[in-house]
Amino acid sequence: MSLLTIKDLVKSYPRPGRGARLSGRAPGEPASNAASEHRVVDIAEFSLAAAEQLALRGESGSGKTTFLNLVAGILAPDRGSIVLDGREVTALGEAGRDRLRAETIGYIFQTFNLLQGHTALENVELGMAFGRGVDRAHAVELLRRVGLGDKHGHFPRQLSTGQQQRVAVARALSNRPQLVLADEPTGNLDRRNAREALYLIREVCREEGAALLLVSHDERVLAQFEQMRDFAFLNRALGTATP
């Protein structure tokens, strides 16, 4: 059964010099004409099954992050449909999308995005704080599983980059998500740490039964996945999509 189904998803940004705004059109704001807009994402169809692990290959600037942000509900599309776990994301208001993200999605960023004023444990707890609530025992268990059982009280600055990414992985899984989005999760890691982090992400997602949608331009990362799609062929906005 499909966990995520996307149809006719379009997202554009105003062209630079015309009041460009990366966050795009605000809800309710009328669409401007095509000449003043730069289409970033235009996807006819896409789906991901529950617990499936899929890698999307894409170069920098190809709209991968925008795509993930649309799926996460951080951005609102100009048009199209995103159905996640049976819920139409585009029909939700901002607060509804926030709740969906807090309860259903885990997000792993290239730059980890840990809060520097929070300890490792507190960062992991943040991942569940805005959804069903903090479960400290689960946070502790996740840190143990990513090999940081003895680093609960460490602040990000006291951890290596590899360890920071492992905290980010634990945080992304802390709300028991059905879908984990990973945006170049190994981009800031050396080869050994990248391999370990990737293994960890896939392994923990598998154990937790979460689907994984990972975007990367790194062939070594992409080669680890049984299923891989080229974002250039998926995104019609790039002009290279297959019909």
Partner: peptide, 9 residues
């Protein structure tokens, strides 16, 4: 980051 993790405005 908090907003991305689901914190409301």
């Amino acid at each position: 980051i908090l907003r991305a993790l689901g914190a409301r405005r």
